[in-house]
Amino acid sequence: MSRDGFEYPDAAGYPDGMGFLDEGTAEELAEGAGSAEYVTPSADAADDLRIVDDAAVGRYRALIGDREVGVIRYSQSGTHTVLHSTYVDPELRGFGIATAFIVHVLDERRDRGEALVVECPVIRRFLTSHSDYADIVVR
């Protein structure tokens, strides 16, 4: 929150503390930071990041130990998987967790032979600098 009491939205359009990326992480993605091969968080991140597909509720959950630190919501629509939103705990942003999380989900869906509809602005932004996923994204 700024000193005038107004909470400015981050690059994804969400206010800090409620959004999906802080401005610094969004800028790194826009500049092409990271790569499709990057499937583990940076050395600064916790080394026990686990990603679990909770298909019953349409959520991928990112866990460090027993703590949920991120969520990617999705649903099935005919033959497509729709990626709705991404969230990473604001305290843990900037450590590569969101990048590792997104790459894991995209790779897993590709391995299943699924086509994706991406509604999530964070994942869309990631895809602008990772064209190697263009083959699985239908819109």
Score class of each variant (00 low, 15 high):
Met1Pro: 11
Ser2Glu: 14
Asp4Tyr: 09
Phe6Lys: 14
Phe6Ile: 15
Tyr8Gln: 11
Pro9Ala: 08
Pro9Cys: 06
Asp10Trp: 07
Ala12Ile: 10
Ala12Cys: 10
Gly13Val: 03
Gly13Tyr: 07
Tyr14Glu: 12
Tyr14Asp: 12
Asp16Trp: 09
Asp16Cys: 08
Asp16Phe: 14
Asp16Arg: 12
Met18Tyr: 12
Met18Gln: 15
Leu21Ile: 01
Ala30Gln: 13
Ala33Asp: 07
Ser35Asn: 10
Ala36Leu: 11
Ala36Phe: 11
Ala36Lys: 10
Glu37Ile: 00
Tyr38Lys: 15
Val39Tyr: 08
Thr40Tyr: 09
Pro41Thr: 07
Asp44Val: 04
Ala45Ile: 08
Ala46Trp: 09
Asp48Cys: 06
Leu49Lys: 03
Arg50Cys: 05
Ile51Lys: 00
Ile51Thr: 07
Val52Met: 09
Asp54Val: 11
Ala55Val: 11
Ala55Ser: 12
Val57Gln: 03
Arg59Ser: 05
Arg59Lys: 14
Arg67Ile: 12
Glu68Pro: 01
Gly70Ala: 06
Gly70Ser: 05
Ile72Arg: 02
Tyr74Leu: 05
Gln76Gly: 10
Ser77Ala: 11
Ser77Gln: 15
Thr81Ala: 10
Thr81His: 07
Leu83Trp: 05
His84Asn: 14
Glu91Asp: 14
Arg93Ile: 02
Phe95Lys: 13
Phe95Arg: 14
Thr99Glu: 09
Thr99His: 07
Phe101Lys: 07
Phe101Gln: 04
Phe101His: 03
Val103Phe: 01
Arg110Phe: 06
Arg110His: 05
Asp111Leu: 13
Arg112Thr: 03
Gly113Phe: 00
Val117Asp: 05
Val118Gly: 08
Glu119Lys: 10
Cys120Thr: 02
Cys120Leu: 05
Pro121Tyr: 03
Val122Cys: 05
Val122Lys: 08
Ile123Gly: 04
Ile123Trp: 06
Ile123Val: 15
Arg124Ala: 14
Arg124Tyr: 00
Arg124Ser: 12
Thr128Met: 09
His130Glu: 04
His130Tyr: 03
His130Thr: 04
Asp132His: 07
Val137His: 04
Val138Thr: 13
Arg139Asn: 11
